[in-house]
Each structure stands twice: as structure tokens, then as C-alpha cells.
Amino acid sequence: MSQPTAPEALGSLTDETPIDPNSKKAKAITGRSPMQIALGRLLRDKIAVICAIVILFFIIVAVFAPLINKMLGVNTDTVFPSQYLDMLGGGMPLEGPPNNGFDPDHPFGIAPQTADDNLAYWVEGCRTSLTIAALATLFASVLGIVIGLLAGFLGGMVDKVLSFFIDLFLTVPFLLAALTLAPILNERFNTADSYVTIQKFSLIGVLAVFGWMGMARLIRGEVLSLREREFVQAARVLGMPTSRVLIKELMPNLAAPIIISVSLMLPAFVAAEAGLAFLGIGVTSGASWGQTIAKAVKYFEQYSLYLWEPLIGVVLLVLSLNLLGDAIRDALDPKTRR
């Protein structure tokens, strides 16, 4: 079964990579020492370098979010909106954008209705976005690699059953599943003290559970071809235990497809997190770009900056991740020319 590439699939969460792992090209890579060559090619790619710098910027913001907010003198504390908003004049901020000039206390302005500081929420939103995308990628990758390895290596019935499950998960509409699951998970844990964290993890769980299939298929295909190769055959004949064959012999040869998969997953998860928050689920307590976008849409005419801030955050991050991923895929495949 192939996968949809339509835009509604939330970026390319379930996208097939453009490279067929069984093709001669992929084998050619694994034959040489690919990583150094690829890295060299990547460093010569200007767009890739720029994207990497942008991504690095976002990572720094995410990692040091509290510190950055402190340095800039802003915070996500709740404030009383009546002190900062023009209550009878349409609820727009008394100082700063959109109706007044730059407000040094709140460089990004403040939000209508709640008077929250936009910059602080932007920085925290970046953190939320990257944390969730990174962890979801991690879990989905592990899941995908394990299932792909098992299916490809063991073959037979195991392969049939696992392939069926891959198809099954590809058939479930991801958005609907996420929409249905997230509130149920939230309700389970609503009395816990660490609710905000649990909510994030349940979102990560949902993303990972519906995001591992691409990786699994890629790995399975790769393993299917690798396991017929002499060095694997030899290891098996020598009586190496299966787990050792998998980890010692196969894994090192799977680096390229894994990197390719991850480069597809990361931007897709960033987009998915924001998209779900935009639809009103996902992170509801705490800061999230998607949530701010959803709130800001109705103020677009009066206060477009409020929408543009998180929107540019999402677009820039997803764009850089996608372009860098593209460059990585190119670099790993010596045959493509852009």
C-alpha cells in the first residue's frame, strides 16, 4: 500500500521518501563510507548551511527558553488584562502594537483579551514545539526501527502480521485519531499534579503511535535486501544470535535510511503539533504556537502582528527542517542533482 502525499496529510508525516531503498542507488551508498562524503557535500550546500543555522537558533531558543525570557525581561505569568487593554475601546492593548508604536517592555506586543506577553509565549511556544517534535521523532523512530527490523529480518508470518499492522495504521486517518484520543488521554490524568507534562506526553504518544510507519517500511525494505548479503549470511551461519546480528551487522548499514526518515519526521511533527493545537486539541495548558494562531485569527484585521509572530515561527522552523532534510537526502544520494 502506498501513502498519500496530499497536503491534508499534515506535511509529510506518512510520506514515502523519494528514494527507493531497494534501488541500486541506495546500495551504492552503503557500499562506500557514506557519512563523511555526505557531510562534505552538505557543508558545500549553502541553503543547507543557512537552514542549519536557523534550526540551531530555534534549538537554542528552545533549550534556554526560561533564561532568554529572563534576559529579555518578559515572562509568561498571568497578568490582569484590565490594566493593559483598552476595555471599552475594543480590547486592544493600550501600549505597543497594533495601535501604538514599539513597546520596549513587550517587544512582540501583548495579546488581546488576556494581555499575555507575546514574546514570552513565543519563546515558550518554540520550546513546546521542538520538545514535542523531537521526542515524538525519537519514540516513533525507535518503534519504527524495531518493527522494521523484526519484519524484515524474521520474514515469514512475522513479516506478514507486522506489514498488516503497518497498513492498518496507515489506514486510520491520523487527524481523526488524534482528535479522538487526545481528550480521552487528558481526562485520565486531569487530577494529577504534573498534568501539563502528562498532556504533552500524551500528545507525543499520539504523534509517535501514528508516525512510525514510514520508518518501519523503509527499514523493512532495507533489511530485506541486506539479509541476503554475504556478511549477514556468514554471521548467521556462524551461529551469531539473532539480536546480535540485528544490532552488530544490520544497524550500522541502516544509518542512511534512518537519517532520511528522521529528516522527514521532524518537520512533520512540528507541523502536526501546531496543526492540532490550531484545531483546538493538543497542548491546551501552556504555550503553543498553534494555539496562539487559533486565537489570533479573529484579530487578524485589527492586530495582524499577533498572528504573524507564531505563524512565522512555525513556517520558518518547518521550512528550514524540510529544506535541510532535502539537502541531507541529496547528500546521501550521490546521483541526484538539484
Binding site: 497536503p7 491534508e8 499534515l10 506535511g11 518537520p267 507541523a271 501546531a274 496543526g275 490550531f278 494562531i293 485569527v297 487578524f300 484585521e301 498572528l307 505563524l311 512555525v314 513556517v315 518547518v318 521550512l319 524540510n322 529544506l323 532535502d326
Partner: peptide, 23 residues
């Protein structure tokens, strides 16, 4: 086109709607 397709679709659609319809 690579650039365009790297933007999340729903934001592209949202902006289309905001500008053409609302603004």
C-alpha cells in the same frame, strides 16, 4: 516549489483565506 511545499499546508490555506476573504 520546494520552498512552497515546505510550508505547512494549513497555514498556507489559512493565509489564503485571511487575505482574499477577510482582508
Amino acid at each position: 516549489f520546494l520552498f512552497l511545499s515546505s510550508i505547512p499546508y494549513y497555514l498556507f490555506a489559512l493565509l489564503t483565506w485571511l487575505y482574499l476573504t477577510v482582508l
